Simulated assay, not measured.
Amino acid sequence: MNSIMSLQWLRRSGKFLAGAVLTLTAFGIWVVPTYSTPVGELIAKKMMELEASQERWIQIDLKNQRLIAWEGGTQVYAIVISTGKGSTPTRPGIFNIQTKLAKSRMRGADYDVPNVPYVMFYEGNYAIHGAFWHRRFGTPVSHGCVNVAVNHARWLFDWASVGTPVVIND
């Protein structure tokens, strides 16, 4: 397994370590320090902190293809979603909504969709957004974004604000 494939395997397997400094050795092998905390532990800790607060936050459950809107430890909304397919997975982690747009054009190597509704970017080009082009919610089909039925996307868009935490777990 080459070093790029190793990094991809680590990321997909959930074994990628948050805060780790990766070092490429002279032998072409990436080294991960042993003092880093696994992402899963950081996610679990963050979820416990948010549940103990009164803060609004969004949980994306990749395994069960569910999005849950929380206010502290109280679930206020739960829906079936579609996250990234195997070749373009949705990455677990702790994020915050960075930008909200009522409509946006989504483009990639093999897609170009204008007027995507209720877009909330949480990291780079990754977003929670309405999807009018499919009804396969509950199945990973996206290019890494979190696809939500348009009516649910509108509710989330109105409920969440810039800065709202987004916790994505396996």
Rank of each mutant, 00 (worst) to 15 (best):
S3R: 10
I4D: 15
I4M: 14
Q8M: 11
W9Q: 13
W9T: 13
W9D: 15
W9S: 15
R11V: 08
R12H: 08
G14W: 04
G14M: 04
F16L: 12
L17M: 11
A20S: 14
A20K: 13
V21G: 12
V21T: 14
L22F: 14
T25K: 09
A26D: 12
G28V: 03
G28A: 05
I29P: 02
V31A: 07
P33R: 05
T34Y: 01
S36A: 08
S36F: 02
T37V: 15
V39H: 06
G40I: 06
E41G: 07
E41S: 04
L42K: 11
L42Y: 04
K45P: 03
K45F: 04
K45A: 07
K46Q: 14
M48H: 06
L50M: 06
E51Q: 12
A52I: 08
S53M: 05
S53G: 06
R56V: 15
R56T: 15
W57A: 10
W57E: 12
W57L: 14
Q59E: 11
I60Q: 04
D61T: 08
L62W: 06
L62D: 05
Q65N: 08
L67V: 05
L67F: 08
I68V: 14
I68C: 13
A69M: 15
W70D: 06
E71I: 11
T74P: 03
I79H: 00
I79C: 00
V80T: 11
S82Y: 00
T83V: 00
T83H: 02
K85T: 14
K85I: 02
G86C: 10
S87E: 13
T88P: 01
R91M: 09
G93H: 08
I94A: 03
F95M: 06
N96T: 09
K100A: 08
L101A: 13
K103T: 11
K103W: 12
S104G: 05
M106S: 02
M106T: 02
M106W: 02
M106Y: 07
G108D: 12
A109T: 12
D110K: 09
Y111Q: 07
P114T: 06
V116D: 02
P117E: 14
Y118D: 00
V119I: 03
Y122T: 03
G124Q: 00
A127C: 09
A127L: 06
H129M: 02
A131R: 01
A131G: 06
F132L: 13
W133A: 00
W133L: 03
H134A: 03
R135H: 04
F137R: 00
G138L: 05
G138Y: 09
T139A: 04
T139Y: 08
T139L: 07
P140V: 03
P140C: 09
H143Y: 02
N147P: 08
N151E: 04
R154D: 09
R154M: 10
W155E: 13
D158E: 11
G163V: 07
T164N: 14
P165N: 07
I168A: 15
N169F: 13
